[in-house]
């Protein structure tokens, strides 16, 4: 019994003890906080990753179209009444539809005369625009000799300008889209003939992205069959259209992945 008296009970209210308890509680709080911070960092990484890619990519699902009056001139395409159906279709494969487009544009912009300007005017349109003209006449040969309005695809750079992704205030020399092209585009916009539409061909035809990619490589004198790797620093000069299309493609991929992940989680929660 004497022993018990010699040990003093802990005095929880002594200044020493209160200080100790305070430290312990502070440590507890800090530890908790570090955990919250870690989770926040991890989740915000995910949000930044997905957010940035979606931000870049979402406009890639839309494609700028330009309503253009196209004249299916008999002198360039040929006269379908003089040949049978298959011969005409074969003929269409050989016709240079750049000439059809160029002749039609001549009517639209009569004041564009010099050779280089005319070539530049053609560059407003995507390479796919020729294919659109060919498909139109191929589907309906009776259009020959007529003038119809076709919603043609704009070129990648023009597409980017229209979406506001290319800064047109920088000096002309540092810009891929020149002032003349911008003025023509402005005329078309003022006419209300330029608009955006859902890019169905993004899902059905894969070769367009490849062309964008190849152009990057060509600028750096690389052959086309290889993605730019060492000579071309994507971090230094990302091409806007490439960025947009790739991000859009990644979005499709990630949507699929997230859907699969969701399915996995659902299955796990169901059977757990």
């Amino acid at each position: 019994m004497t022993k018990k008296n010699s040990i003093k009970p802990t005095d929880w209210h002594s200044p020493e003890m209160t200080a100790r308890i305070k430290t312990r509680y502070r440590k507890e709080k800090n530890f908790h906080r570090i955990g919250v911070i870690a989770i926040t960092i991890a989740v915000s990484f995910l949000i930044i990753l997905l957010g940035k890619i979606s931000y870049d990519g979402v406009s890639g699902f839309f494609q700028t179209r330009i309503d253009t009056k196209i004249t299916f001139s008999q002198s360039i395409i040929g006269v379908p009444s003089t040949m049978d159906k298959t011969a005409f279709q074969d003929q269409l494969k050989r016709v240079n539809f750049t000439r059809v487009l160029a002749a039609s544009l001549q009517n639209e912009f009569p004041d564009v005369n010099s050779r280089s300007d005319r070539r530049r005017l053609l560059r407003i349109y995507s390479i796919g625009a020729r294919e659109q003209i060919r498909l139109a006449i191929s589907a309906d040969p009776s259009l020959i000799g007529q003038t119809v309005i076709l919603p043609l695809y704009a070129a990648d750079d023009i597409d980017q300008v229209f979406k506001g992704n290319i800064d047109t205030s920088v000096p002309e020399a540092n810009r891929r889209v020149k002032d003349k092209e911008l003025s023509w585009l402005q005329t078309l916009i003022d006419d209300g003939r330029v608009y955006q539409k859902f890019h169905t061909r993004f899902f059905t035809a894969g070769d367009w992205n490849g062309r964008v990619y190849c152009r990057c490589a060509k600028q750096h004198n690389r052959s086309c069959d290889r993605p730019p790797r060492t000579n071309f620093l994507m971090a230094d000069s990302p091409e806007r259209a490439f960025l947009e299309k790739t991000s859009a493609a990644i979005m499709v991929l990630l949507m699929f992945l997230v859907a699969m992940n969701g399915l996995a989680i659902w299955l796990r929660q169901k059977f757990e």
């Binding site: 989740v43 990484f45 995910l46 990753l49 890619i53 992945l257 997230v258 992940n261 989680i265």
Partner: peptide
């Protein structure tokens, strides 16, 4: 599950 999405993203992305 959100964190696990990070592991599922392809490395090329």
């Amino acid at each position: 599950p959100l964190l696990e999405i990070l592991a599922g993203v392809p490395t090329i992305v």
